[in-house]
């Protein structure tokens, strides 16, 4: 069956991609790579589900089989949920097909057999629009489309050989410790300018009087492990839309500020008056956070 082929191990994204196919006026064909996945995929509202049955527990190991199926069925587009494993499968499939692929689209539309995509380049400094023709691959982050209404689809089982070379040894779930910043009304954000972990106290106190969530730049989470990874903001982290965002010790590289573009008000505190964060800020104070932040907390407290 031709149409838009869809894969995501996350059912929410899979459902959103079905909506995308519907909007494009194309059949939505869902791929499942395990018996469990096939079971849940059946009810998402797709036109058809292919269950590629092989040996490997790793989705990525099905890239060649997926590429062959897409070709055989005359698929027009392979739309994949932008997760770590989805991106890998998508890129490897594109590699086998030697076809066009656009990662992490900001937007995608489909008309007259052509796919138009938009995505960010240079950490968010540049927006690139591309046209894809012929069988292509895209990865799509969550939240780009509404979820589709459920509905039952026929499941066709295809026996395939998965790539046996990469063997799974063990899986340890990561316990989510962080909060969902994307819904926070206020965010206080710390960066690598904060010298010691103990200094987080000043940020926590400010966050408390504001009723804000604590966010950070990538290095605070990924290198220093002071906060959970869900807490970092930016192109590879969370995208936030608070009423108020206050940063301290964040230089404001584009990879970070791209995550706060939709904040209503941006306030920055940084020692360096040339820090790019001030170009992205509504209000800024040039100064040492250890001095500025406690005073700010006090002043807000006094307001009551």
């Amino acid at each position: 069956m031709s149409g838009i082929f869809i894969y995501s191990e996350r059912l929410d994204i899979a459902s959103e991609l079905i909506t995308f196919a519907r909007e494009a006026g194309k059949p939505a064909v869902l791929l499942a790579l395990s018996a469990d996945a096939a079971q849940s995929a059946k009810n998402l509202g797709a036109d058809k589900v292919y269950y590629l049955k092989g040996e490997s527990p790793l989705a990525e190991s099905y890239a060649l089989a997926v590429a062959q199926l897409l070709q055989k069925q005359g698929s027009e587009l392979f739309a994949v949920g932008a997760t770590a494993s989805g991106r890998d499968l998508a890129a490897r499939t594109a590699g086998y097909l030697d076809c066009a692929m656009v990662s992490d689209v900001l937007s995608v539309s489909c008309a007259d057999g052509q796919i138009q995509t938009e995505r960010m380049m240079y950490g968010g400094a540049v927006l690139q629009r591309e046209t894809l023709s012929g069988l292509s691959v895209i990865t799509v982050p969550p939240g780009k489309f509404e979820s589709s209404p459920p509905g039952l689809a026929e499941v066709e089982v295809v026996e395939v050989s998965s790539d046996p070379r990469v063997r799974l040894v063990e899986t340890a779930p990561i316990v989510r410790q962080g909060t969902d910043l994307s819904k926070a009304e206020r965010v206080v954000c710390i960066g690598l300018g904060m010298e010691k972990k103990e200094d987080m106290k000043i940020a926590l106190e400010l966050a408390e009087v504001l009723g804000a969530e604590l966010g950070c730049s990538r290095g605070i989470a990924e290198e220093r492990h002071w906060l959970p990874v869900e807490q970092y903001i930016g192109i590879s982290g969370a995208i936030v839309k608070p009423q108020l965002y206050i940063s301290m010790g964040i230089s404001g590289q584009v990879q970070h500020t791209v995550g706060i573009r939709d904040a209503r008000l941006i306030v920055a505190i940084d020692l360096n008056d040339k820090a790019p964060i001030f170009k992205a800020a509504d209000y800024g104070i040039v100064g040492d956070m250890n001095q500025v932040v406690p005073m700010l907390t006090e002043a807000i407290k006094k307001m009551g």
């Binding site: 066009a100 690139q128 104070i285 040039v286 100064g287």
Partner: peptide, 20 residues
């Protein structure tokens, strides 16, 4: 394989009131 049709910068419009 892809054809780039636009390559545009992004500018954030903010108040930029910086106090020192």
């Amino acid at each position: 394989k892809t054809q780039v049709t636009a390559f545009k910068g992004y500018v954030m419009q903010r108040k930029n009131i910086i106090l020192s």
